[in-house]
Nucleic acid binder design. Structure first.
Lengths: 212, 212
DNA sequence: CCTCCCTCAGAACGGCTGTTCTAACCACAG
DNA sequence: CTGTGGTTAGAACAGCCGTTCTGAGGGAGG
């Protein structure tokens, strides 16, 4: 298998297939490709398509007209792959999350590199994390997980056992001996110390988005 | 023209075409549709396709195999519209933008509410805007425009006429009598004063994105 | 009942389309 | 020179595919 780079002709074929798909919504025929790339013989197109398939640039379905599908980088359908992240409410230090009705939720579309599937977002209320550069009104993208590393910014739920019942909070989490410190990033505010048993980590902040 | 709603059969046809497209990447043939919907005659499929085209549910290309394209709501390609924003380089206070080769650019997908078409993004280098909560490594989304209001955070280009030739900078912009003040958000840094003639506003920061 | 219109079935036609076969050309190594 | 492997061209084949024609049910209105 010659794993050399594609010939000029082959690159033009892949590019043309993508253009054709964008324009028409269906793949080109072997003869369409030949005409576009300047190949008079269908067998030569077929030859190059077979080669491109072996190299992993596309997939073909035998005996099916227009049975060509681009894969990987060439696939312009997946060039628009994105993650949909619902903004499910507002969070403020030490108060319950203000949930938003599902039908009123904003939905953010984000690159998969920014937020993986399953994430949610919360709008931040207040300046309790201002020294971590999270402002009032910012949106934090949260990846759901029940554990967190020391120093992670997490959405934590204080259960009834604690002295702050049923409240959600956005804080940095630090484990200390037999307790957990929830540290705001605002020197005007004091940390909260809780029993690990009365704390439930809801998720970790993976991104911050601010609109101006 | 009977603008009544679609028959059960016709709804199933539209739905099948969408499913087929999602699965295969190319549209079905008339016979594929017939098989899926339980129609033995190609003429009946053709008849219903013509009807669906007249009602605006799809477009067809005559005499072209698989020449079917869903339009409007049925078009799953356009589901979840987003804006593609290229990260075209890095910007630091008072240094030229470090451009990135086009093929190496990251591309962010963002909700249209976050960034309209035509925006670009820059990765921030340094802490010159730290007091505006823009950190080293953050990404700023910039809407191209040549004017700016007082206090806007802008990407500004200092042209050769000025004492800081050919440099781009990220600053807050304030117009003062016969000069412009470019104000960093870092008390350790001093503002730059420039002649309005030697300043070109490239765009305004509309969003800040931070990954953690 | 008859007629008209919409919907449907089956068959056939002609062109489109993927595939294959043969042959040629070229660069390169033996 | 000769042979070999990679690439291209042209032609032909068989099957796929959109289209069209004929005809038939079936309900609405006369």
């Amino acid at each position: 298998m010659s794993s050399t780079r594609l010939s000029d002709r082959q690159r033009r074929i892949v590019e043309f297939i993508g253009d054709f798909l964008d324009e028409h919504g269906y793949p080109p025929t072997v003869r369409d490709i030949g005409r576009a790339v300047g190949i008079s013989s269908t067998s030569v197109v077929d030859y190059n398509l077979k080669r491109l398939e072996r190299e992993g640039y596309l997939k073909r379905v035998r005996d099916v007209s227009r049975g060509i599908e681009l894969v990987g980088d060439g696939d312009r359908r997946s060039r628009g792959a994105f993650t949909e992240v619902p903004v499910i409410g507002r969070i403020a230090a030490g108060e319950p999350i203000e949930a938003v009705e599902e039908r009123d939720r904003d939905r953010l579309l984000l690159s998969p590199s920014l937020a993986e599937e399953g994430c949610f977002a919360l709008r931040v209320k207040g300046k309790s994390m201002i020294e971590d550069l999270i402002d009032d009104g910012d949106v934090v993208v949260v990846r759901p997980q029940s554990t967190a590393d020391n120093g992670d910014i997490v959405v934590a739920l204080l259960t009834e056992a604690s002295d702050e019942p049923g409240r959600a909070t956005l804080k940095r989490l630090y484990r200390e001996r037999d307790r957990v410190r929830l540290q705001p990033a605002n020197s005007a505010l004091n940390p909260i110390f809780v029993d690990p048993a009365s704390l439930r980590v809801q998720g970790k902040v993976v991104a911050v988005i601010r609109q101006m």
